[in-house]
């Protein structure tokens, strides 16, 4: 079964605040995704995210331009605080978002029962890496789209998409999580907080940057994550992106700071049957969101016009490189040899 690249592929862009939301819409995003100012989403960072008024304004702006708004409610509640999450789902439904992106099965059951008209997407935090897992969520809760963890090769994505009717959304650009999303407790080991329950990885309260005679040191809860010489490019203090000593070598033992950039693979991804490309970066600012959205919009439009002759333009890659972590990029797991 061959899928033509003429099916419209949606561009889903991050909104950490209203200016970013507008930058995304203005530069051609089909959908924007956002979170509330609390732990109900996996980017629970200081100064980020939306309150109810901001969301109303954001939705109005998006609607004016005929775009969609998705809410990320993709962390896992504990028994004690479950009401905050179900309240958030209620707010989302009342605000009229186009879909809620979730990971916890009980929340999906709640949404399906109490707000049957609310479209559900399975978050990357749900860590579903096979059609069996995706179909489980589809059959039990009616999810209509699944965001794939960044661990599958192109061939594996193709296989998966062919065996489910659920729409497939994949990350195309942004900071790369080398661990399968939704099942990573590294941050909890270092700080006591993790994306799953607190919505934060390597949270800023535990981060210290310190200029020392040995260089600029990055620490997470006192643990030395990396040390930069003068002029060396820095990266996020996420603990998997540091340099560590394993046997006699000191190197990026887990991951080098680089952004995922799958632009060159766009025709292949389209051929694999995906329905949407997701841009990572709710914690990045409007300039980033605008720049990245613009490039991907141009690329998707070029793909739609003429898939066979699609080629990633140098100008696009240069723009994306400028905002990449480590100012370099990788195809990540899409390219099997990366694994």
């Amino acid at each position: 079964m061959t899928e033509t690249a003429s099916r419209k592929i949606e561009l889903v862009c991050p909104a950490g605040g209203l200016p970013s939301l507008k930058a995304a819409v203005d530069n051609g995003a089909d959908c924007v995704y956002f979170g509330f100012k609390d732990a109900t989403n996996a980017r629970n960072f200081t100064g980020l995210n939306f309150d109810l008024d901001q969301i109303r304004e954001g939705i109005a702006y998006a609607r004016q331009h005929g775009r969609k708004v998705l809410v990320a409610l993709n962390t896992y509640p504990l028994k004690a605080n479950q009401k905050s999450w179900t309240a958030a789902i209620d707010h989302a439904a009342e605000l009229g978002v186009d879909a809620a992106i979730m990971a916890d099965p009980a929340l999906m059951a709640y949404a399906a029962r109490v707000h049957p008209a609310l479209r559900l997407h399975l978050s990357v935090q749900g860590s579903a890496t096979s059609h069996e897992a995706i179909n489980f969520y589809h059959e039990r809760f009616g999810i209509q789209r699944a965001v794939l963890p960044r661990v599958l090769s192109l061939a594996q994505i193709e296989q998966l998409a062919a065996n489910t009717q659920v729409e497939i959304e994949v990350f195309g650009f942004g900071g790369l999580c080398v661990m399968v999303e939704g099942r990573c407790a590294l941050s909890a080991y270092a700080t006591g907080q993790s994306p799953n329950c607190q919505g934060a990885c390597s949270p800023d309260a535990f981060v210290r940057w310190e200029q020392t005679p040995r260089g600029m040191e990055t620490r997470l809860n006192g643990i030395l994550i990396d040390r930069y010489a003068d002029g060396e490019r820095a990266s996020y203090p996420t603990l998997c992106k540091g340099r560590f000593a394993v046997r006699d070598e000191t190197y990026y033992a887990i991951e080098e700071p680089a952004s995922l950039n799958a632009l060159e693979m766009l025709p292949a991804l389209a051929g694999a049957g995906i329905s949407a490309i997701k841009i990572e970066g709710r914690q990045r600012n409007p300039a980033y969101v605008g720049q990245v959205t613009k490039v991907w919009r141009a690329a998707l439009d070029a793909l739609a016009r003429n898939a066979e002759n699609f080629a990633a333009q140098d100008a696009w890659m240069t723009e994306l490189n400028k905002v990449s972590e480590g100012q370099s990029y990788t195809l990540g797991a899409y390219y099997r040899p990366w694994k």
Binding site: K37, D38, A39, N44, D51, L78, N81, A87, Q198
Partner: peptide, 13 residues
């Protein structure tokens, strides 16, 4: 005891 539960806050500022 340090309970890890975070309080959800959707209240407007």
């Amino acid at each position: 005891k340090d309970v890890s539960a975070a309080n959800g806050v959707c209240a407007a500022a």
